[in-house]
Structures are given as structure tokens and as C-alpha cells.
């Protein structure tokens, strides 16, 4: 669609393993608008991290293969772009990344200041201006930007912090630094891969609040992958659900939680521990992606499944404004 910041079309990715070829992404469609916070939710093994990595072009080169698809961003197909251009123009510049575990993302033998200065040397927005300052003037201008950004992510005493080593700061502070480093190059899209999973619940609330506020302030789109529906509810505008390498439903956040149309989404919401519904899981297990079920991959665990579900993956259908679902037997409003 016109006006999309990034559009993933019919993306298929497979991984080679000892047991065979795992079809990890099976024709995924996903488009994100400028400034939107998009949740990408699903259980482990559903392909949400693979999708994030495919967009960034950091799939493991020896194991992963992109079989088909397009990732359109800024008028080009990122999958066709040579690695050198991807690294110079896109990754860490227009599309930034916030990792799941901030403790392994830093190099332990350099100070935080050194590592951020290194980032600014290559990815500073100043380098993109018409007449960039050079030498000391450039370093001082970048340093001022860094300090201002650390204040924005509410890190106390930025100058002292820059002289510290990564192990000297707490997990929450490291994640704040990661957010600062992602935003410093002024990207258009930030991919946050389970950014709060490694954090405690009180720190998670702080980080989510910060991420949401900064994304709005800088008008940057966020692709927020998570398995935690509560965290997705907190910050997302729209949510895409994936199951076993296929996206099954996409809806605005209120619609997603109040009126889910896909049976898997409904069951996922019912699995959340709550006093009203009690304990309800989903019988069965996630399929092995080496020999996935044909058609809709949810069919072995779905009580609505019929012959057509095994024959063919359901096409995307409109279930409401901005609400797309891929199911042959989607829930009616009364059932949702």
C-alpha cells in the first residue's frame, strides 16, 4: 500500500538443519506505517525473530535461505540490496535494532562512551548533512547529541556514565542505553526484539513507558516483537499475530483484544491466566517446521479445521477497518 514505511510481501525463509529443511517463514505479509508502533506477537518458534532479522539482513548466512519475497523500504527491495550498501545506508541508520539481552550487546572491554562514540563515527545524523563538520568539531557536536539523548532516556549523570564499563551499570540502565543508541542515528524504524523479556516487571514498566514516549516524540515507527500480550497491549497501535511461520491476524490494538477473528488469537488470549477464564491452554504442540502441516499451519490444533484448511492457506480477508485475518472459518462477532 502507498504510504507504508516498510512492506514485507510473501516472504519465505528456510533454515538448513541436520534433520532437514525447516520452513521458518511461509509467505509472510506485513506492512508498517510511519510512526506506528507495531506489535509482532507469537509463541516461541513462530518466526517473529526471523522476520525481524530478515528485515535487517542479519540472518545467519550459512544456515538461512530467503526463498522468495520482497521487503520494500524507501522505494527499494532490501533483499536485493548488496550487503555493503545495506550496512552503510540502512542497518543501524534508517532501521535500528534493540536487542533482547542488553548485557551481551556491549563489548565488555570498552567503556560505554567509547562504544557510543564509535557508533556516532559511522552512523551520526551529522554525517548525512550537506556540510558535515569534521575532526574535533564533529566529535564535540556528536558528544553533545549523545549527552542530550542520554538525558532523554532518563539516565542520571550522563558524563560519568560514559566513562563506565558495561558491567558497572544495571540491566535497566543498559536497556536504556540500547534505546538511546538505537535512536541516536535518527532512524525511521526501530526493531525492538523482546526488549523487556530479560527485565523485572517494575523495570519493564519503566522501559515500556520510555520506549513508547520516545517513539512518539521522535516520530519513529517501532516493530516490537514479544510473546507477552500484556506488554503488546501497553505500547502498540496495531498487532500482528504469527503462528508457526505464518501471520494469521493483524488488527488495531483495541479490536485485537476485544474482537479477535482468528481461532488461534482467541485461544491465545484465553490462555492468559485470569480469574474469569481460569486456566485454559491450547491442546497439542507447535508443529515441527521441518514437516509442517499443509495449508493453514494451525489446523492440527484447531477444532474448526476442515478439508479446505488442509488444502490451502487461507487468503487475507478484511474483518473490519485495518483488521485482516487469514482463516477459512473465522469467528463471527458473537463468537469473538
Amino acid at each position: 500500500m502507498d504510504g507504508d514505511l516498510i512492506a514485507v510481501q510473501d516472504l519465505r525463509v528456510s533454515f538448513a538443519s541436520d534433520a532437514g529443511i525447516a520452513r521458518v517463514l511461509d509467505g509472510v505479509q506485513c506492512a508498517i506505517r510511519p510512526g506506528e508502533i507495531r506489535g509482532l506477537v507469537g509463541e516461541s518458534g513462530c518466526g517473529k525473530t526471523t522476520l525481524a532479522r530478515a528485515i535487517l539482513g542479519i540472518l545467519p548466512p550459512n544456515a538461512a535461505r530467503i526463498d522468495s519475497g520482497r521487503v520494500t523500504f524507501g522505494g527499494r527491495n532490501l533483499l536485493d540490496l548488496p550487503e555493503a550498501r545495506l550496512a552503510a545506508e540502512v542497518r543501524g541508520r534508517e532501521i535500528a535494532y534493540i536487542p533482547q539481552d542488553p548485557s551481551t550487546a556491549f563489548n565488555p572491554v570498552f567503556t560505554i562512551g567509547t562504544q557510543i562514540a564509535d557508533l556516532m563515527r559511522w552512523k551520526s545524523p551529522l554525517a548525512r548533512t550537506a556540510n558535515p563538520p569534521t575532526g574535533r568539531a564533529r566529535r564535540e557536536a556528536d558528544h553533545a547529541r549523545v549527552v542530550a539523548m542520554l538525558r532523554q532516556v532518563q539516565l542520571p549523570n550522563p558524563e560519568a556514565l560514559l566513562r563506565k564499563y558495561p558491567h558497572e551499570v544495571s540491566g535497566g540502565q543498559r536497556q536504556r542505553l540500547m534505546i538511546a543508541m538505537a535512536l541516536l542515528p535518527e532512524p525511521k524504524l526501530v526493531i525492538a526484539d523482546e526488549p523487556t523479556t530479560a527485565l523485572d516487571v517494575t523495570v519493564q514498566a519503566q522501559i515500556l513507558k520510555l520506549l513508547k514516549g520516545l517513539a512518539r516524540e521522535h516520530n519513529v515507527a517501532v516493530l516490537f516483537t514479544t510473546h507477552d500480550l500484556g506488554a503488546a497491549y501497553e505500547i502498540c497501535d496495531r498487532i500482528t499475530v504469527m503462528y508457526a511461520g505464518q501471520e494469521v491476524e493483524e488488527a488495531p490494538v483495541a479490536e485485537f483484544f476485544n474482537r479477535p477473528s482468528h481461532p488461534y488469537t482467541r485461544k491465545l488470549l484465553d490462555s492468559l491466566p485470569s480469574a474469569e477464564t481460569g486456566l485454559r491452554g491450547i491442546p497439542g504442540e507447535i508443529p515441527r517446521l521441518i514437516d509442517p502441516p499443509p495449508g493453514c499451519r494451525f489446523n492440527p490444533r484447531c477444532e474448526r479445521a476442515s478439508a479446505v484448511c488442509l488444502a490451502q492457506r487461507p487468503p487475507p480477508e478484511q474483518a473490519g477497518p485495518g483488521h485482516v485475518v487469514r482463516c477459512h472459518h473465522r469467528l463471527t462477532d458473537a463468537e469473538a
Binding site: Q173, V201, T202, V203, K209, F257, L269
Partner: peptide, 24 residues
């Protein structure tokens, strides 16, 4: 109280709007 206030509650007020505990 802070611990309970930090749990996201689907359908309720958003923790990101209400949560106030600072520090670690």
C-alpha cells in the same frame, strides 16, 4: 503495591500511563 501496579492489565488502564516507581 508497585509490583502489582507494574503488571500490564489487558483492557484496563495502561501501566505506561500510570506507573510511577523509579529506580532499580
Amino acid at each position: 503495591q508497585s509490583l502489582l501496579a507494574a503488571i500490564p492489565r489487558i483492557g484496563g488502564a495502561r501501566v505506561t500511563d500510570t506507573f510511577s516507581l523509579e529506580g532499580e
